[in-house]
């Protein structure tokens, strides 16, 4: 439910990047969104559509790269993609896990029209 504040924070970065690269318009914005990031991609898309009006990104498309939740077991080194959030290794039961993917909420790249 806090997708609008995430998008507000995204636009701070977009405007700074546009200025630094002397962009006239931003045409594409690509995000990485993990399954465990706590945000819903569809709501990010809605918030982006609302927020972009009247900005340098008015005509930009939002592309979301969804990253699954993936853990690596420090005991048996197995890497598993999980559909739930259970923090125990399905192979050996160890609880010493490292999250490989799934918490991402990253601005990966921007495509812009320049002078």
């Amino acid at each position: 439910m806090h997708e609008l504040s995430v998008i507000a924070s995204l636009f701070d970065t977009l405007l700074a990047q546009a200025k630094a690269h002397k962009a006239r318009a931003i045409t594409m914005v690509k995000l990485e969104v993990g399954a465990l990031s706590g945000v819903v991609p569809e709501l990010l898309e809605s918030a982006f559509e609302i927020y972009k009006k009247g900005t340098i990104a008015e005509k930009a498309d939002l592309v979301i790269d969804r990253r699954p939740f993936e853990v690596r077991c420090r005991a048996c080194r197995a890497v598993e993609t999980r559909s739930d959030f259970i923090l125990a290794c399905p192979s050996c039961g160890s609880t010493d896990l490292e999250i490989v993917h799934g918490t991402e909420l990253v601005l990966q790249k921007i495509e812009a029209e320049t002078e």
Binding site: S9, R24, K109
Partner: peptide, 17 residues
């Protein structure tokens, strides 16, 4: 109009972090 890819790789919640 020239187009340019800008690689950013920045956490969207970076300022909070």
């Amino acid at each position: 109009m020239p187009k340019k890819d800008i690689l950013v790789l920045q956490d969207l919640l970076l300022s909070n972090a």
